[in-house]
């Protein structure tokens, strides 16, 4: 689907970029005139995907993370978060609620929250090659003058 508008951001997997990434997504979404609830949901979903790239994809090094934002026909925002890290051996298992390889600092709810706060979630991953998370979220059409 062709994008009406798009932006690409690449940054190192530093935890300081988690807030940066979700704020960027919220700024890009401003053109959709979103409700506060929609903005909160978007920021949360982006935060989860980027945090996974920071925490899991590159456990012992700093790698690259790509954030792609695309505005599609029908008030739909597509968010892609891509890394070139360790990858996920079993995606279906990783997406189950409470599944985590992260210990007590993690709750294993990241993918569930992404699924809950967007309309479509797709995860592609290959061990040793990296992970791509694509989310689509439809925003309400507010009265236009």
């Amino acid at each position: 689907m062709p994008a009406l508008n798009s932006v690409k951001l690449e940054f190192p997997s530093l935890s300081a970029n988690e807030a940066f990434a979700r704020s960027c997504a919220a700024c890009f979404a401003a053109q959709l005139d979103p409700t506060l609830e929609e903005l909160g949901d978007l920021k949360t979903a982006v935060s989860e995907a980027v945090t996974n790239a920071v925490v899991h994809a590159y456990p012992s090094e700093i790698g690259r993370v790509l954030l792609k934002l695309r505005l599609l026909e029908g008030n739909v925002l597509e968010v892609t978060v891509k890394d070139w890290g360790c990858g996920i051996p079993d995606v279906a298992q990783a997406m189950e609620p409470l599944f985590t390889t992260g210990g007590e600092e993690r709750s294993g709810m990241g993918f569930s929250i992404m699924a809950c706060f967007t309309d479509k979630l797709r995860v592609r991953s290959a061990p040793g090659r990296g992970t791509t998370v694509v989310m689509r979220k439809k925003f309400s059409r507010r009265i236009q003058l």
Partner: peptide, 13 residues
């Protein structure tokens, strides 16, 4: 004003 799953783990801990 904002919290994600990292916050959930923290509250449960």
């Amino acid at each position: 004003s904002f919290m994600d799953s990292s916050g959930i783990a923290l509250l449960l801990r």
